[in-house]
């Protein structure tokens, strides 16, 4: 993957159609974090959950070990809201889309990796979407004053932080953009930062998201070319 070497995004890998029985699936690797996603839909839906105007989206987030807890519920809700806003749900009233996210390996930036994996899986399933969601995580690190190497207020922004980077940072922000206009769809930022720092994180994330969209395009064209063969 020649594209990766010039980027600070780490190793990016994506393989679609990894699961036979799902309508669409994707295995997405960003750095050392690895997520597997399977998508079903538009499929039958329990009458009690149906919506007469549009399809409903269910997201199931599975941790690497143990049973899903409150943290997973939070991720589920976050991913679900993104899916709801990008999928053209009014095309399929009274049906359900089911998205299963399985964490394979978590070494930081899990949320953005999961969202990108879901994006690729939805694409693989051929579900009509307004745009593809693209997520980028940025960590803000602040060094102690005695450190002379950093000049600019001793601030450092790390794109796609690893677990170690996340532990050392004061704030972590994950932004989700649409692949067409690069407007933000969702955001999750945790930790004290000024609004200027927030804007800087957003700007960096937006830059990085363009590279990820290019990566999406490359891996889809690779998939399509192998399909023809």
């Amino acid at each position: 993957m020649d594209l990766n070497s010039s980027l600070p995004l780490g190793n990016l890998q994506c393989e679609q159609k990894v699961l036979k029985n799902t309508d669409g699936s994707a295995m997405y690797t960003a750095g050392e974090t690895n997520v597997l996603v399977g998508v079903y839909g538009p499929a039958d839906c329990k009458e009690s959950k149906q919506d007469v105007k549009q399809a409903v989206v269910e997201v199931n987030f599975r941790p690497k070990i143990g049973i899903p807890g409150v943290a997973e519920k939070y991720m589920e809700k976050f991913v679900c809201k993104i899916c709801e806003s990008v999928i053209l749900r009014s095309f399929h009233p009274r049906t359900a889309f089911s998205v299963i996210v399985q964490v394979m390996q978590d070494q930081g930036s899990l949320l953005s990796c999961a969202i990108n994996a879901v994006s690729m899986a939805l694409q693989d399933a051929g579900i009509s979407m307004r745009c593809m969601p693209v997520a980028v995580t940025v960590a803000l690190q602040k060094k102690e004053k005695e450190d002379n190497e950093m000049k600019d207020d001793s601030k450092k922004f790390v794109i796609s932080p690893s677990t170690k980077d996340e532990e050392e940072s004061v704030a972590i922000a994950t932004f989700v953009f649409d692949s067409a206009q690069y407007d933000s769809i969702s955001a999750y930022a945790c930790g004290p930062m000024t609004s200027d720092e927030y804007r800087e994180c957003l700007r960096l994330a937006k830059e990085a998201s363009k590279h990820i969209v290019r990566f999406f395009r490359d891996s889809v064209s690779r998939k399509v070319s192998t399909d023809i063969r």
Binding site: K77, F78, C80, K81, I82, E84, S85, C131, A173, F177, D178, Q181, D183, S184, I185, S186, A187, Y188, A189, C190, G191, P192, M193, T194, S195, Y198, R199, L202
Partner: peptide, 15 residues
């Protein structure tokens, strides 16, 4: 300072 920003879903929105 911003401590926590959470934006869930909805349509794309300009900055």
């Amino acid at each position: 300072n911003l401590i926590y920003v959470q934006r869930q879903g909805g349509l794309a929105m300009p900055e």
